[in-house]
Structures are given as structure tokens and as C-alpha cells.
């Protein structure tokens, strides 16, 4: 069921980016399984009432994966699936990067990397102030861990004992200019987060059993924020995009589009 939805979301991603002629396929495809698990299993949310007070919050800090978020929102019923093809077009509700004022279900305007975790901290602290049960999930890129603000956020989340907050790192090992370990090495990444006071859970990020188990573990952790390091493959699901830094921010050609759709089970 989740697997099927993930394939569907991946097809939407390719169609959106191909249709727009620009966008970020690599990081959208690597983030897909985690977002599908969140929207179609883990999170409490109501597409018919996007501003429902008790909804779990999701912040896509790596805003360039907007196609994945839009596909999940459309398939959840926040807006018609047909609207996906308007992404990046003038006048569309679906901007190149998420816009919380334009798109129902989008919780934060992101795109400049490094800011989403701090927004998540504000949301999670507000939940505590309001004695609400909702949880806040923030997805970060691994390259995004270069940003100083991420570590400012990391420090403050453990200072404030924000245990209703979960950060998920899409550990696809690539950033824009190349491999993360070559551009600005992150390892030992888990130890760094541990040193900042976080409960660190490392998983295979394309395995739904592991993803859901990690969410559960995070929920059981009290007094500390949790970070899930989801080991993923950039471009996951499309053979020639997998691990290809060139597909970070490039739309597929017509041939590539057709090949990708076939691989993803499209007709």
C-alpha cells in the first residue's frame, strides 16, 4: 500500500519536473518514502481541514523537494491531483519552493536552506505552551547540515527538551556540488547530533518498516528531541538518476522522462 503510493508519488515528481522544465528530481525522489510514511501512515492530519489545530506539523526544510510534498498533499486530498501540473507556472498555487500562504497543507515557506528546523522548534514549543498533543516533523537535507543555523537549532532543541519534535535527515550523501564527504564532510554525523543532546536513530530510508519503527522510537523518547538519519539514495527509483549529482537540479529530457516513467511503472 505505502509502496504503491510511493511509486505514484515518484511518477508525479517526474511528471511535474518534466512539465515545468526545471526542478530538483534527485532530492525529491530520495525523500519520497519518508514523506509517504508521514502523510499516509504516521501523521494525524485532515485534508478537508488543513488548519485543524491538533494536526501534526510537517516542515520541509529542504524546500527544493517541493514536488514530493505537493504530490503527497494532492494524493491526501488537499487539492486536486490535476493541479500538480501547474507547478512552477505563473499564477500557480504550487510555487517552485513551498509557500505556506499559497498552498493548502504547506506549513512553512522554505527554500533557503537551514531555516526549517528552527521553525519546527517554534511549532513544537507552541504545542507545549498550548498543551497540545500534536508532533512536529522536519525534513532536512544532509548537505543542509552544513548550515550553521541547523546547529543553533540543534542546541536549542535539546536545551528546551523538545521531545515532541522529530528531525529527519535525508542522508543521500550528495549535495549540489558533489558528494557531501568531499564538499563539506559531515561524518560522524550521528555522533555530532548525539553530542548536541539528541536521540539519534539511524535507518534505511527506503524501508517502510524501518521508517515507521523509527517514528515509534522517537515518540517513546522523553526529554530529548529525536533525529532520524535516513540513509537514502539520491534519485531513488530512476536508475540513471540514482547517485547522479547531475540530477540534483535538472529536469529530464523527453527520452529520460519516458524512460523514468517506465521504470516507475507508468504506462
Amino acid at each position: 500500500m505505502l509502496e504503491e503510493m510511493a511509486s505514484k508519488v515518484r511518477r508525479h515528481i517526474i511528471e511535474m519536473i518534466y512539465g515545468a522544465g526545471s526542478g530538483h528530481p534527485g532530492g525529491s525522489l530520495s525523500a519520497t518514502d519518508v514523506l509517504v510514511a508521514l502523510y499516509f501512515m504516521e501523521m494525524n492530519h485532515r485534508s478537508e481541514d488543513p488548519k485543524w489545530e491538533d494536526r501534526d506539523r510537517f516542515v520541509l526544510s529542504k524546500g527544493h523537494a517541493a514536488p514530493t510534498l505537493y504530490a503527497c498533499l494532492a494524493e491526501s486530498g488537499y487539492f486536486p491531483v490535476d493541479e500538480l501540473k501547474t507547478i512552477r507556472k505563473i499564477g500557480s498555487r504550487l510555487q517552485g519552493h513551498p509557500d505556506m500562504r499559497k498552498t493548502p497543507g504547506v506549513e512553512a515557506s522554505t527554500g533557503s536552506e537551514g531555516q526549517g528546523l528552527s521553525m519546527g522548534i517554534g511549532m513544537a514549543l507552541a504545542a507545549k505552551l498550548d498543551r497540545k498533543k500534536y508532533r512536529t516533523y522536519v525534513m532536512l537535507g544532509d548537505g543542509e547540515n552544513n548550515c550553521g543555523q541547523i546547529w543553533e537549532a540543534a542546541m536549542s532543541a535539546s536545551q528546551f527538551k523538545i521531545d515532541n519534535l522529530v528531525a529527519i535527515i535525508d542522508r543521500n550523501k550528495l549535495q549540489l556540488d558533489g558528494p557531501t564527504e568531499k564538499i563539506m564532510s559531515l561524518e560522524p554525523l550521528g555522533d555530532k547530533w548525539k553530542a548536541f543532546g539528541w536521540n539519534v536513530i539511524e535507518i534505511e530510508g527506503h524501508n517502510f518498516r524501518e521508517i515507521l519503527a523509527a517514528f515509534k522510537k522517537a515518540k517513546e523518547t522523553k526529554g530529548h528531541p529525536s533525529v532520524i538519519i535516513a540513509n537514502t539514495i539520491k534519485g531513488k527509483g530512476v536508475s540513471f538518476m540514482e547517485g547522479a549529482v547531475g540530477f540534483h537540479g535538472k529536469s529530464p529530457s523527453k527520452d529520460e522522462y519516458e524512460k523514468a516513467m517506465k521504470e516507475l511503472g507508468g504506462d
Binding site: 515545468a20 522544465g21 526545471s22 526542478g23 524546500g63 512552477r88 510555487q95 517552485g96 519552493h97 509557500d99 515557506s109 522554505t110 527554500g111 533557503s112
Partner: peptide, 8 residues
């Protein structure tokens, strides 16, 4: 800049 939108 075009497609990337206002954030960029």
C-alpha cells in the same frame, strides 16, 4: 530567476 520562485 524564474521557476524557483520568490524564495530565490
Amino acid at each position: 530567476v524564474g521557476g524557483d520562485g520568490a524564495t530565490h
